[in-house]
Design a protein around this nucleic acid. Structure first.
Length: 261
DNA sequence: ATGGTAGTCCCACTA
C-alpha cells in the first residue's frame, strides 16, 4: 500500500495537477492539506472518477483537510480533542481521520505560529501537544494500532530541515518550544518514517513562492508521516516528490510518499 | 538586474 501527504494550497486552483499526480504517483491513500474550500465547494468528481473516496473537512477559504482513498474509507473523524482558536466557533478545519486499508490515517494541518510573540504561536504549541496526548492515549489502549499522522506540521525539527539556520534567527518553525512540541508527538510513540529513506541535508518538502526559493534550493522539511510502532515496521520506502514542485502552477509543498508492506 | 509569489469570500489577509 502506498500512502502520501501533500499540502496542495487550494484543491480548486490545482485540480488538474492533483488528478495528474494521483495517476502518476499511484498512491492508494493521500492526505491533503490546505484545500482552502468548504465541503460543498470540494471538486469531488475529480477524485471519484479516479476511483477514490474522499473525506473532507472544510468550513471556509482557510485551512481545509481531506483524505482520498481507493482502499476504503471508514470511521471518519475530525477531532482528537484539539484546541480551537475561537472556542465559540469550534475547532478550525485542520484535522480529519479515516481508516483506510486497515490504517488509521490522519490528515493534519498544524497552525502556523506566525511570529513568536503572536497568540497563534501558543495556539500552535497547544495544538501539537494535544496531538501527542491523543496519540499516547490511543497507543496505550491498543499498542499495535497502525496509525499515521500525515501532514504539514509547520515545524522544522532538526537544523538540517532548513537551508540555513542563520536565516531563521528569531523566526518560527525552528524554535525550541516548537521542536519540543513536535518531539512530544514522537515521545508518544510515533516516528518519522520518511527521514531514514531520504537522508539530508538538502531534502525539503516546502519552498516559499517568494524569492525564487525553489531554484535556489532554499527549502524546509515541514511535512511528515509519523507512524505508530506497528505501522513503522511495515515501511519499505519513502520519497519526497520534488518534481511536483516544478512547472506551471505548483503547490509550494511537494508530496511525501510512503510505501508499506 | 540586487528583486523577483500565490491563494482566497478581491485589494486585505494568510502563508
Amino acid at each position: 500500500m502506498r500512502i502520501a501527504t501533500w499540502n496542495v494550497n487550494s484543491v480548486r486552483a490545482r485540480g488538474e495537477r492533483i488528478a495528474a499526480w494521483l495517476q502518476r504517483s499511484d498512491a492508494d491513500v493521500v492526505a491533503l492539506q490546505e484545500t482552502k474550500c468548504r465541503d460543498d465547494q470540494f471538486p469531488m468528481e475529480l477524485f471519484t472518477e479516479l476511483g477514490y473516496e474522499v473525506a473532507h473537512n472544510g468550513t471556509s477559504q482557510w485551512n481545509g483537510v481531506a483524505i482520498a482513498s481507493r482502499v476504503g474509507l471508514e470511521d471518519v473523524s475530525t477531532s482528537f480533542g484539539q484546541p480551537a482558536w475561537d472556542e465559540e466557533a469550534g475547532p478550525e478545519a485542520r484535522a480529519v481521520a479515516a481508516t483506510c486499508g486497515g490504517v488509521r490515517v490522519w490528515s493534519l494541518y498544524v497552525p502556523n505560529g506566525r511570529e513568536v510573540d503572536d497568540p497563534h504561536y501558543d495556539y500552535k504549541l497547544r495544538w501539537l501537544e494535544r496531538l501527542g496526548v491523543a496519540g499516547r492515549e490511543w497507543l496505550s489502549a491498543e499498542p499495535r494500532a497502525p496509525i499515521a499522522f500525515c501532514g504539514d506540521f509547520n515545524v522544522a525539527p532538526q537544523d538540517d530541515d532548513v537551508w540555513d539556520m542563520a536565516a531563521f534567527e528569531g523566526k518560527t518553525h525552528v524554535t525550541k518550544p516548537e521542536r519540543d512540541a513536535f518531539t512530544s508527538v514522537l515521545n508518544a510513540g510515533f516516528s518519522d518514517v520518511v527521514r531514514p529513506h531520504t537522508p539530508g541535508p538538502g531534502v525539503y518538502t516546502f519552498w516559499d513562492y517568494q524569492g525564487l526559493s525553489f531554484p535556489k534550493r532554499k527549502g524546509m522539511r515541514i511535512d511528515f508521516v509519523l507512524a505508530s510502532p506497528e505501522l513503522a515496521g511495515r515501511v519499505t520506502g519513502a520519497t519526497v516528490d520534488r518534481e511536483e514542485r516544478k512547472g506551471k502552477g505548483p503547490s509550494d509543498h511537494a508530496p511525501v510518499i510512503v510505501d508499506l508492506d
